[in-house]
Every structure is written in C-alpha cells, then in structure tokens.
Design a binder for these strands. Sequence first.
DNA 1: TTTTCGATGATCAAGAATGATATCGCCCTG
DNA 2: CAGGGCGATATCATTCTTGATCATCGAAAA
Lengths: 95, 95
Amino acid sequence: MIKNDIALAIEKKTEYNRARSLSIVEGVLEALKSALTNKEKVEIRGFGSFKVVPKKTGFGRDIRRQKQIRIEKGQRIKFRPGQELKTLLSKAKPS
Amino acid sequence: MIKNDIALAIEKKTEYNRARSLSIVEGVLEALKSALTNKEKVEIRGFGSFKVVPKKTGFGRDIRRQKQIRIEKGQRIKFRPGQELKTLLSKAKPS
DNA sequence: TTTTCGATGATCAAGAATGATATCGCCCTG
DNA sequence: CAGGGCGATATCATTCTTGATCATCGAAAA
C-alpha cells in the first residue's frame, strides 16, 4: 500500500476527488510528522504508538574504512503496534 | 498526539466539522490496518514503512509458572522511519 | 518521465527487543 | 464518564536491531 492507495480509500469514503483526498492524507501524515518532530508521543488506540527515544550510544562501524566510529547523540522513532492490530494479525491467515 | 488531535488538523484543513474529520482519520487508519492484516507492506515515502514479519522463533518465558515455553508461529509489525522523518528529527532541538 | 527514497547487504560489538502472562496507574475514546 | 488499552515492570534465553557508510536497483511520488 502506498500513499495513493490511502487517498483512494478516502476518495471512496468522501465526496472528494483523488487530488483532494491525497491532500487530506498528506495532512494526516503531516500532523504525525509535526508531533514527532516535537518529540511528542503519538498514541492511536488500536493502531499503535510512535515514540521518540534516544539513539543508542557508544560505537558504530564505518565499513568503508573498517573502523569503529563514535555515534553522535540523537533520537530515533519507535513504533509499537496496538492491541487491535496485533489481534487482526494473529487472526489473519498464515502467509 | 491522539486521534482527536489529528482530526483537529484535518478540520482546519477542510470544510469538514470535527465529527467528519474524525471519520476521515479513521478511514486512513482503517486502510492501513486492512493492508497490514493482508500482510501487505505499507510504504509512505518520507514518513516510513510498515512491514509484517515473522515473530521470533524459539522460546519465551511464562513468568507465572517460571517455565520456558515454546513460541508459536506468528507475525508482527515492524515500522521503519523514512528519510524525511529521520532528518526532521535530527534537525529538531535536542530534548 | 525523472528524482530520489527505500530495501538489502556488507561489518562488528553492544544493547535492545522479543516472546510468554499478569498487575496497576494512567489515559484514550466512544 | 466508564471501559479497557497502554506502558512499565517482572524473568530468561535468544533473536534481532542498532549505529555508522555506501552501492545497487526497484518503485514511490512529484
């Protein structure tokens, strides 16, 4: 599924055309991005939660130079699926 | 950020009221859930990708009974943040 | 069509997550 | 507001990811 597919689903659900539906989907994504950029946790019951956490510290590896390098401070995003999503998955047919 | 906050953002962006905006947000989430339930990967450029992958195999622990147990087959969902989201995060002020 | 993101893979060591089940305080949401 | 999801926590052994950089190629998206 890609952004356009979601817009298609919104198009079917509303009286908006594809372009407007796409714009709305982008609005949703933008809201999420903005919250996360502000380190704000995002929690959607049933779907899941996104949380900004610190990067690991210590060392990483620069493969090109075969050397260890120090990992700078930073943040990353963790997603944790919600209950409902997990349940839907466990009920779906095995792949 | 919670579902209602996203609906608020959509309300501001459209001529829909809160209830309809909320319904649209739910439509977006429903589309995502449906795709994932069907084991379909979801890729949104810049935001990130969700992918259904097999659960780890081997053993888990039943704490109540202080015993190891075998982990049944299953699926879980992995999220991988997109480039843009990572970049926004690294540019945001340290917390 | 063009741009560029994203998946994959390579290395290595450290550390986080995963799985299982249950409790409890907080809080999302119908 | 009430119901129940969510997250932290507990255990233990194992699995997996994380981080760094970069090349390749398929595909998202403008």
